[in-house]
Design a binder for these strands. Structure first.
Lengths: 204, 204
DNA sequence: CCGGGGGGTGAGCGGTCGCTTAGGGTACGG
DNA sequence: CCGTACCCTAAGCGACCGCTCACCCCCCGG
């Protein structure tokens, strides 16, 4: 898992900066942004407290970088799956499956990305909110397609979109890698639940 | 809303202790436990920083009291609704409707209750986790009843239970009292979504 | 062999944190 | 009228925070 976890941070260079990001994700996910000290982050990365400031101007900038990379990764997954050929039901299932699998597999990153947003500065926060709106629009697009095709029965499209995304995001909060469910299993279960939520009747 | 909000804290006496709890809930919900200072809480309650320690031994004890009252209130609502007479579908809809309405109406309290748990000390945390397990058991009981009666079609009961509760809880994160949805509307929407998730076919 | 620059460290600064302490104001029983 | 029990405050203690600074080491071109 260590190698796999570091691959998602491949775009962060040099090596020391990437080690700091990985250490920060672990610390933020475990205790939260405000309860984490810069000394703790540097210590986990095997450096002195001062080394952090060679690569990042502030602790908040570290969170911003993590949040940006994480949101872009999640959005990319969602767009790739929702853009495939297929019926709206197939596209919704694929999107939810992949989105949930990412939130489970990278639940430490996802926890930081989804639940520590409020600690961002005003400008950085506004930028991230823009990415979140795109996530919302992507899911809503699939559901609208399904309604237009007569495959889905959804009385409240924006509300149901919100609920589906909310359900997926919350996986990051409760998922435990030592639990008995694998990311694949949770993704499969949630894809089915999402289809049920939009009133898709399988096999009919 | 002020009066209504303070009513849920009626069991906290004397008055000064209750004002501190209300101030702490507002501050914790807005910035999180670790980003809130005891000076901020006391200031919101119209007292000096030292006054907090007349009524609570530590800042963590304040969180513990809030968490305890909130969890007990939410569990009480869930049990009352799930214990009514009626079909499993009616009971599930009523439970979800009321549980979600509480999370929306008291979304500041609910946010603290649901998302600041990790800041509790070890013993207090363990106690609260016990209450959460009872919440889980209550919802699972309804779903099992529905499956036994042949009204619900649920391949994975524990997983679906977890998803339904997760969906309800996450309302506290995104709900905004200045948004366009009322707590009643969200409760209604979510009751319908929960029935869909358990494979209940209305009117058939 | 030397000079310079980028990544690193030890020590520590100013500020703020959770919490404590000494004492003041007020209502009330005797 | 006094004692006293209860809330409360002003001031501040020790610890720890985010962040900085002076300096060091090591690699590399000339």
């Amino acid at each position: 898992m260590g190698v796999e976890q570091s691959e998602q941070w491949a775009e962060i260079t040099p090596d020391a900066a990437r080690r700091l990001v990985i250490a920060a994700v672990a610390a933020f996910a475990e205790r939260g942004y405000h309860a984490t000290t810069t000394r703790d982050i540097a210590g986990r990365a095997g450096m002195s407290p001062a080394a952090l400031y060679i690569h990042y101007r502030t602790k908040e900038e570290l969170l911003y970088r993590i949040s940006g990379v994480g949101h872009r990764l999640a959005l990319e997954i969602l767009r790739r799956e929702s853009g495939r050929d297929g019926t709206p039901a197939e596209r919704l299932a694929a999107a939810v499956r992949a989105f949930v699998r990412w939130h489970a597999e990278h639940h430490t990153t996802a926890r930081v990305v989804q639940y520590e947003l409020q600690a961002l500065g005003e400008e950085h926060y506004a930028e991230i909110v823009g990415l979140r709106r795109e996530t919302d629009a992507t899911v809503r697009g699939i559901i609208e397609d399904g309604v237009a095709a007569g495959d889905f029965a959804v009385p409240d499209v924006p509300g149901t979109t919100l609920a589906v995304i909310s359900l997926c995001i919350d996986v990051a909060r409760w998922f435990n890698s030592e639990g008995k469910r694998t990311p694949d299993e949770v993704g499969e279960l949630y894809a089915d639940l999402a289809l049920r939520m939009v009133g898709y009747a399988a096999g009919r």
